[in-house]
Computed example of a mutant assay.
Amino acid sequence: MIKIAPSILSADFSKLGEEIKSLDKCKVDLVHIDVMDGSFVPNISFGIPIIKSIRHLTKIPFDVHLMIEEPARYVKDFVDAGADIITVHFEADRHLDRTVDYIKSLGVKASVALNPATLVDNVKYLIPKLDMILIMSVNPGFGGQKYIEYCDSKIKYVKELADKYNKDLMIEVDGGITKDNIARVVRKGANVIVAGSSVFRGETIEDNIRILREEF
């Protein structure tokens, strides 16, 4: 089953509650929440208070993507705020194996993200214990960027490793996903698709999600 995970980084923050309710109505699979610290990535987004404030609006699992330095320091706070999946970056954590174990010990799913130029083999030995790998298909920090084509081969390679070591692994792709490339990304092996601008811009949220779903 292919999951759609709208990224609320592209939502209208002046009516965030309404947008969350629209996602709930569309029965999306995950709500993707990008947390940025202005250090690991050149942007600042939102944090724990925002997640707490919207948690009661939906039962859709919160897919919290920590684009922050030293993420292990804040994992429990985000779990307490309502996260169901915690993603930390390979590039931001010096003790990744320990952090993955810590996330799982808190009763939520553990995920590791890789920036576009980061080799998949850096996390090969973690695959058996991970719930998800996030392949960044743009350089993290901003929405609305164009998909980086060489990420196709990374997705395919992660799928090969998942078939060998962890058939339950979710393979998430984030960045530049549109109706024109979503089918190709799914064919390469992705089964969780993050979409920001493609969901929250242009047509209604409901129409945009329907259009994406019709492509795979």
Rank of each mutant, 00 (worst) to 15 (best):
Y125G: 01
I171E: 10
F142C: 04
G144E: 11
G141D: 09
S137D: 07
A162G: 03
S153E: 13
Y150W: 08
K146L: 10
D152M: 01
S137P: 02
L130G: 12
Y157E: 08
K124Q: 10
G143N: 08
Q145P: 02
D163N: 15
V173Y: 07
K124A: 11
I127E: 06
S153W: 11
K167L: 05
M170D: 13
K167P: 09
D131T: 13
K156M: 12
K167S: 06
K124V: 11
I127G: 07
Y147S: 02
D131S: 15
I148Y: 00
M132N: 13
F142S: 05
V158S: 02
Y150L: 12
E172P: 00
K167Q: 13
I155H: 12
L126R: 06
K159W: 10
Y165Q: 02
S137H: 04
Y147A: 01
D163V: 03
V158K: 03
L169R: 10
V158I: 15
C151A: 02
Y150S: 15
D174W: 05
Y125K: 14
L134A: 11
F142K: 08
P140L: 15
K167M: 06
I135K: 04
I171L: 12
K156L: 13
I148H: 05
I135G: 01
Q145T: 10
V123F: 03
K124R: 15
K164M: 14
Y125T: 03
F142Y: 13
I148G: 01
D174C: 06
I135Q: 08
V123R: 01
I155V: 14
Q145R: 12
E160F: 12
Y125E: 09
N139M: 02
Y147I: 00
K167N: 09
V123T: 02
K154S: 08
L126S: 09
V158D: 01
P128G: 09
L161P: 08
D168T: 09
I171N: 07
K146F: 15
K154P: 14
M136T: 09
N166T: 13
G143R: 08
K124E: 14
M136Q: 08
S153Q: 11
I155G: 03
S137T: 15
N139C: 00
N139W: 06
K146D: 09
M170W: 10
N166Y: 05
I171T: 03
L130P: 05
K146G: 01
L169S: 10
D163W: 09
L130N: 10
Y125C: 00
D174I: 01
A162R: 04
P140T: 07
I171Q: 12
K159C: 03
I127L: 12
P140M: 14
Q145H: 07
D174N: 08
C151Y: 01
D168E: 13
V138L: 08
K159H: 12
L126V: 08
I127Q: 05
E149G: 00
I127V: 15
G143D: 04
K129S: 09
K164E: 15
S153M: 13
D163P: 00
C151N: 13
V123W: 05
I171W: 15
K146N: 11
P128Q: 04
M170R: 03
Y147T: 04
Q145Y: 12
D152C: 00
V123P: 01
E160C: 00
C151I: 05
V123H: 04
P128C: 03
I127W: 07
D152K: 02
L161A: 02
Y150N: 12
N166D: 10
